[in-house]
Every structure is written in C-alpha cells, then in structure tokens.
C-alpha cells in the first residue's frame, strides 16, 4: 500500500520565539515499488519529512498514511507505532555511529529482540540480514562493530534496519563520506535490497549525477514545500530554479544543452550519464561510425541490474517488481 501525505505542515519550537516552519502544506503519494530520490538543500525540510514517515516526529497539521496506518494530530485513535516502525526502516546519515552493542550479531538482532522474538530467532534473522548486506555472519558476527572497516560498519548498521524486513526503506544520504568504490557498492546494495527485501525505497541525496542513475522519480524540496515532483526530463528544464534551490542539473543534462546550442540535438529523455552516452553513440552510429553496443556506464564492473533510467532502461521493470524475493525463507 502506498504512502499518502495530505496537507502536512510542521514547525519546530512551536509557540516559542524560535518557531521555525520546516514543512508547509506538503501533499504527495509514493507508490509501492518506487525508487524515489529526495533532494533539497540543508534546511529545505526533507529530513523533517522523512521523520514523519515512521512517526519520529508527531504530525502537527495534515495527515500521513503509511500502508494503511494513519497518522494525524489527533490523540485518538493511537496509531500502531510498533507496526509502523516495522514497516518503515530508517537508515540515518552515518548510520555506523549508531552501532552500540559489543558484537555485530547482538547489535543486528537488537531490533527483533525488542519486538519480542526469542534470542535464537532474533539471531537467525540477524544472520540472514547480514548475508543480505554482503557480510558473512560467521566471519563478522562475533566481532565488535569497531573492528570492522568503514564500509563494513555501514553495512552492519543497514543490516540492523532491514532485519525487520521493512516494506519501505528510507535512507538519508547513504553514501556520504565514502570513497567512489564504497559509494558504488552501497548503491548496488540498495538496488539489491529493493529487489529482495524492501520493494519501496526512498533515498535522500545531494548528488545529481548519482541519484539520477538509480531513482525512477525525484522529489525536490525547497523552503519546506515540494518545489518539484515531475518526470526527471521535465524537471531538468527548470535548471535555473533548481540552482536557486542550491541544486545543480546533472552533468549530462548540461552537456546535452551545450551540444544543442551548437546544433547537435540529442533528442529527449536525457536525464543522466547513461542516457546521454547512449544518445551520443546513436549520433555516431547515424554517421556510420562503427560503435559498439552500450549497456550503461559501469566503471568498477560491478553495477547491479535494475537501476535508474539507464541505456537498457530496466527502471520500469524494477519499479513494477513488487514481488520481493523470499530471502528470509518464511513468506512475506
């Protein structure tokens, strides 16, 4: 079931001299199976928005409905927060700072234990979650989180969230502070999680070149409002307004505009470096140049299938794929 937000407004320090409006009448729907990128400068309201999705901040005005669980400002009926938090998995910025237990397996099984699972069950769930994020539970399970490398720590922290099999996975700048290869690995992991565990993914990102390759939809926040929520191709026609919001258009879009000004029209549909490269190669082919088939930029040779609007355009397929594989072996 989708996420439906209607007329959501929120202010910090309400009723004090420091009152600051963070969200201003937000209405939007996020459907099952979408990969949504959320963008906006610091203070645009995007973090406040995602915190509403699993009840970390209480609704002041308007309404949020997640998988049928309704959140409003009314005190009663009390929403089922336990169910809500099992539905929406939240991975915060630098999630590795939140690892706290003395072994990885204890840390990852903390969630299910808290939800009432017995220790053995919870640890079995933790082992599956670790495998899913690409860590070997036999190798890292008994280690202290501090013994892991930076990238491993981040994976372990993500395992602690997906261990509850959330239908919706929300990640706040999941690649911040990682080297280029680490970034690629985390993005590929998110694609894998989308396919095998959490069919709806919402990612906050600042990197246009990156997010346009993975997301099927972008929502741009500005001054507490939804500034843009439209197909990417149309969005990037608003280059100047994006700039005013502190965002850039992707490199590929700027290049396509520059080429058009010089008489080379690559046509529509250019939203990222894959679609741009494919369009340029088509021009070369039309000129009779012997160019090879192009299947998307894959610098490290590890890119997972099913991301963004690539040359092979697997995005729609991925977006329609709601049947998450049963990696937990117990039916979803």
């Amino acid at each position: 079931m989708p996420i439906v937000v209607k007329g959501l407004s929120f202010a910090y320090g309400k009723g004090t001299p420091f009152e600051k409006k963070a969200l201003d009448n937000i209405s939007l729907t996020i459907n099952d199976g979408e990969f949504v990128g959320i963008m906006g400068h610091t203070g645009s309201g995007k973090s406040t928005f995602i915190q509403h999705l699993n009840g970390l901040v209480k609704v002041q005005e308007g309404e949020v409905e997640v998988n049928g669980i309704k959140l409003t400002s009314a005190k009663r009926p009390k929403p089922d927060y336990k169910k809500l938090r099992a539905t929406v998995g939240m991975v915060f910025q630098y999630p590795e700072y939140q690892l706290f237990d003395d072994t990885v397996i204890k840390d990852v099984s903390f969630g299910p234990k808290n939800m009432g699972y017995k220790r053995e069950e919870a640890e079995e769930m933790a082992r599956r979650a670790l495998r899913l994020v690409g860590l070997d539970p036999d190798e890292v399970g008994e280690k202290a989180p501090f013994e892991l490398s930076g990238g491993q720590k981040r994976r372990a922290a993500i395992a602690g969230v997906i261990v509850m099999k959330p239908q919706i996975l929300v990640l706040d700048e999941p690649t911040a502070g990682l080297d280029p290869y680490g970034k690629e690995q985390i993005l590929n992991l998110i694609l894998r999680l989308k396919k095998e565990c959490s069919p709806t993914v919402i990612v906050i990102s600042h990197d246009m070149d990156e997010i346009t390759r993975y997301a099927s939809r972008l929502i741009v926040f500005g001054e507490g409002k939804v500034a843009f929520d439209m197909p990417m191709e149309q969005l990037f026609e608003h280059g100047r307004e994006l700039e005013e919001l502190g965002l850039e258009t992707p490199t590929a879009v700027r290049l396509a505009a520059a080429l058009k000004a010089r008489g080379i029209d690559l046509g529509g549909g250019i939203v990222n470096m894959d679609t741009f490269t494919a369009a340029v190669l088509k021009k070369f082919a039309e000129k009779g140049a012997p160019v090879k088939e192009f299947s998307g930029i894959d610098w490290f040779g590890e890119r997972a299938e099913g991301g963004g609007q690539g040359a092979a355009a697997p995005a729609q397929e991925a977006a329609d794929d709601n049947g998450a594989a049963d990696i937990f072996g117990e039916g979803l």
Binding site: T251, A252, L255, M273, F276, T277, V280, L281, F284, A289, P290, V291, K292, E293, F294, I297, W299
Partner: peptide, 10 residues
C-alpha cells in the same frame, strides 16, 4: 562519459 564513449568506439 568520455571513457564510455571511447570504449564503445567513438
């Protein structure tokens, strides 16, 4: 992008 174009023979 340049590398991908070159790789494909452009």
């Amino acid at each position: 992008i340049a590398d991908a174009l070159a790789e494909c023979g452009a």
